[in-house]
Design a protein around this nucleic acid. Structure first.
Length: 421
RNA sequence: GGAGGGGUGGCAGAGUCUGGUUGAUUGCGGCGGUCUUGAAAACCGUUGAGGGUUUUCCUUCCGGGGGUUCAAAUCCCUCCCCCUCCGCCA
């Protein structure tokens, strides 16, 4: 949700933003809707004031006078009803249109059309060198019998996998490692519901969306989350947060479900792009005054997670044409995958300013001042993709997989996954 | 799934039967003040959120939605949520 004051006073800023994002929205039409809406509210309020006044008089009156006023009020109610119906229609239109408005991007977000205009900020770590042709994670996982996509396809269709044997232990090791790291930084741990109501999807900016974009349960109007961002953000919906508690940092572990509509043929096979995966997601409620510092801290944190696993990556500053509606800014962390000889998205770190907090009504009080908090989120560890990065970066000539040093204690001292086990 | 009870301002808790200066008594908490070297206690005052207008007022909100009525926290319908008991169950 955008600020209505901005729409009224600086519509050119919004129009400019829409252009930057390659979107098409008729802003002037919505300004007219808002004007109409406000004059209706004014008329309605006046009638209601009359009505309230009469309601105080009526019990004191008697006989003819009383009946006269009552019948006057009956008439007034008819005009009131007509106006209210009008207002309802206008508001419905107005807010439905407003729901499609993007956030205002930060000045540091590069303006661009699509993913080709994203900007490489910097590289971290070293590409591993192999004296042999590195395998991809599917070859490695299948050989070691820790990944089974064929049977997953039999049971559930394409884009599902079974994690098996040491892959399961490695997932839990990874998750526990990451949780420990985040506990140390004061994050509050969560396991949120993975089924949520429409309001939560809408409030976080995932709705409105095409029906093909998400999973929905048949009987209960509940939606499967694509990320823990949704329940973590909606967690404080309709609340005032104590300014002393900001920044309020959560880390949520959940399964994530994505239909991946429109990606047919892309990244087929393996577990890079699957309908279901597990993820530790960080979510921060922030004081707007410090939120851009908190955001860099958030980026530092995901870099620490991936960096400490010894994976080479680069940080991308995503352009206006490639960030989501709620995002004012977004970094992607792209890890080097030797099996693909390419950098691929492992994590995503977004600053949504007050876009979500407006929709979900999450505020803080600073003395007498009331304002919306800022929200931001970042992947801490998308387990499937991180496993891919580990498999491919830590493979040996024989096709075994070494365990990253940081995870060894979490694997009961095990240092390598090999076929001989 | 069956039976019953309940959702009121930051919290607790009246008001609902018997509709009308009740946006709502009271207590706690919060804020301001008096007192005090300071604090506590005591006392006094103040204290919900949204919208429109704009500094003055108006309006909406007692779980959500709908209805009855000149008038609804209060009556009716419906949905949601919570609690207790029974059944079932990881």
């Amino acid at each position: 949700m955008i600020d209505l004051e901005l729409l009224r006073n600086n519509p050119e800023i919004i129009k400019e933003e829409i252009k930057k994002r390659q979107m098409k929205i008729d802003v002037d039409k919505d300004i007219k809707l808002d004007d109409g809406r406000r004059s209706l509210i004014f008329e309605i309020d006046e009638l209601r004031a009359k009505k309230n006044e009469a309601s105080k008089k009526i019990p004191k009156l008697k006989g003819e006078e009383k009946n006269k006023l009552i019948s006057q009020m009956k008439n007034l109610n008819q005009s009131l009803q007509i106006l209210e119906e009008k207002l309802n229609k206008v508001e419905e239109k107005f807010y439905a249109s407003l729901a499609n408005y993007p956030n205002i991007s930060n000045s540091s977000t590069p303006v661009g059309k699509d993913e080709n205009d994203n900007v490489v900020e910097y590289f971290k770590g070293e590409k591993p060198e192999f004296s042999f042709e590195p395998k991809n994670h599917i070859q490695l996982g299948t050989r070691l019998d820790i990944l089974d996509e064929k049977r997953a396809a039999k049971i559930s269709g394409s884009r599902f996998v079974f994690l098996k044997r040491d892959a399961v232990l490695l997932e839990f090791a990874l998750v526990r490692y990451v949780l420990d790291l985040l506990i140390g930084k004061g994050f509050i741990l969560m396991i949120p519901p993975t089924l949520v109501k429409q309001d939560a999807m809408h409030g976080t900016g995932f709705f409105p969306a095409e029906k093909t974009q998400y999973y929905k349960t048949e009987l209960d109007d509940l939606y499967l989350i694509g990320t823990a961002e949704v329940p973590l953000c909606a967690y404080h919906g309709d609340e005032f947060l104590d300014i002393e508690d900001l920044p309020l940092k959560y880390a949520g572990f959940s399964s994530c479900f994505r239909r991946e509509a429109g990606t047919y043929g892309k990244d087929m096979g393996g577990m890079f792009r699957v309908h279901q995966f597990d993820k530790v997601e960080m979510f921060i409620f922030s004081n707007p005054r410090n939120s851009w510092d908190d955001y860099e801290y958030l980026r530092d944190t995901v870099e620490e997670v991936i960096g400490s696993l010894g994976i080479h990556y680069r940080i991308m500053n995503m352009c206006t044409g490639d960030i989501g509606n709620p995002n004012a800014k977004k970094y992607d962390l792209e890890a080097w995958l030797p099996g693909q000889q390419n950098y691929r998205e492992l994590a995503s770190c977004s600053h949504d300013t007050d876009y979500q907090s407006r929709r979900l009504n999450i505020k803080y009080k600073d003395g007498k001042k009331k304002d919306f908090v800022h929200t931001m989120n970042s992947t801490a560890c998308a387990v499937g993709r991180t496993l891919i990065a580990i498999y491919e970066n830590y493979q040996t000539k024989e096709g075994n997989i070494k365990i990253p040093e940081a995870l060894v204690p979490y694997m009961n001292g095990k240092k390598i996954i090999s076929a001989e086990d």
